[in-house]
Design a binder for these strands. Structure first.
Lengths: 208, 208
DNA sequence: CGATTATCTATGATCGATCATAGATCAGTG
DNA sequence: CACTGATCTATGATCGATCATAGATAATCG
């Protein structure tokens, strides 16, 4: 790499990963406007790397639906509609309901993992931290399902990113849900078979 | 490409796509054994292309969980466990339940799309064709949900491939389910709100 | 002057070569 | 002979350059 300048170092841990982070940050922060073209060579030049790892990063962004690409025509930042933002909730709800139903058996009343996140959520000081702990609570349920495919699919939704976009778009309040988290945890503790539906409805309550 | 020989032509429509097809075919057919290493350069040489499109194809296979890769250590064909094969059903069930609940409203009793697939399934002559029409029935439900994210996630499960692997592993009978498909279609026709659960249970009935 | 076609330009897709890393192999030392 | 470290080998990761395509632009013709 003929890089004796350029952006903050880019430490060695897989250029593709780092470039992806830069691009995600750029898109969520709004530095790259929706609809704006993303030219592989330009990004490569700006970051002082070559085209290949940029392409790799772009494929990840495409999987996250942050960009859209046309064959031989390149990529552009998606123009997220309210519908795009809304579509994620039924999918999450379905996946997390499944996860909860699977998890409730495996947890056998052991809900420490969930309680940790509730505590951290309560201690959160800013909106961003609040969001991350809330998401971590849900991720804990998915992890507890023991279904690796389910985890992988849920992860691939990129909840953090889309939630951040939702918050940016309209100031969706996601607090005030702490009580529901506690109720859900109690349902897990007593092995309530209705916990799946409970989680489902909880997730849908975030939807606009 | 210094290719004046090599495998059947490889027509021009995106090398990555074609290579992916070749690899999927090779893995599902068992020509590539589970655990076997997949060396980018070797594939490239065999197909008379370069490393880049092979890498692209491999990333797709990774997303389909057909291969696993270690950083700097390359890819190998996954050694599918029975658990791997089983994990897909709860995920499908959750997604398709969501899809059905969304679709039942949009369809408003118009179930022609579903009936087409039932008819084709009945007319199927071999096991493979049967499988594809059965899957098409389920895809129709997902499409009818109108939720593009849901469709995208469902597609990314690569149902065809995994079903084929299931059939190969143990001779899972997936026929005899025609009756259930008809029942589900009827539920859609009358707008039965219980259709989601019905689809869920139907999908789970395929599980081992 | 408007429609059609050849050319140009930007850029994605692909290529062949180089760099970097993980293991394997081998040499040296006690 | 076992252990430590240098070297070698295979191969993924990355690079710089070339090829191919889409759209824009200019040239040609009626």
């Amino acid at each position: 790499m003929s890089n004796m300048n350029a952006s903050p170092a880019l430490v060695r841990t897989g250029l593709g990963d780092q470039i992806r982070q830069v691009l995600i940050e750029g898109i969520t922060s709004g530095r790259w406007a929706p609809g704006e073209r993303i030219v592989e060579r330009r990004i490569a030049a700006e970051l002082g790397v070559s085209q290949a790892p940029v392409r790799e990063a772009l494929r990840h962004l495409e999987a996250l639906r942050l960009i859209e690409t046309l064959p031989n025509r390149g990529a552009r930042v998606r123009d997220f509609t309210d519908e795009d933002l809304a579509e994620v909730f039924p999918v999450r709800a379905g996946l997390e309901e499944t996860a909860a139903d699977l998890a409730v058996h495996r947890m056998a009343g052991q809900v420490e993992g969930l309680e940790v996140h509730i505590a951290r959520l309560a201690a959160a000081t800013d909106r961003d931290e609040e969001m991350r702990h809330s998401i971590a609570f849900h991720r804990e349920i998915v992890e507890a399902s023991g279904n690796r495919l389910l985890r992988s699919v849920w992860q691939s939704l990129g909840i953090e990113v889309w939630t951040a976009l939702s918050l940016k778009r309209r100031g969706t309040e996601l607090c005030g849900k702490a009580a529901e988290h506690a109720h859900i945890t109690e349902a897990f503790r007593r092995g309530d078979p209705g916990v799946g539906r409970m989680v489902h409805d909880h997730v849908m309550s975030y939807a606009p």
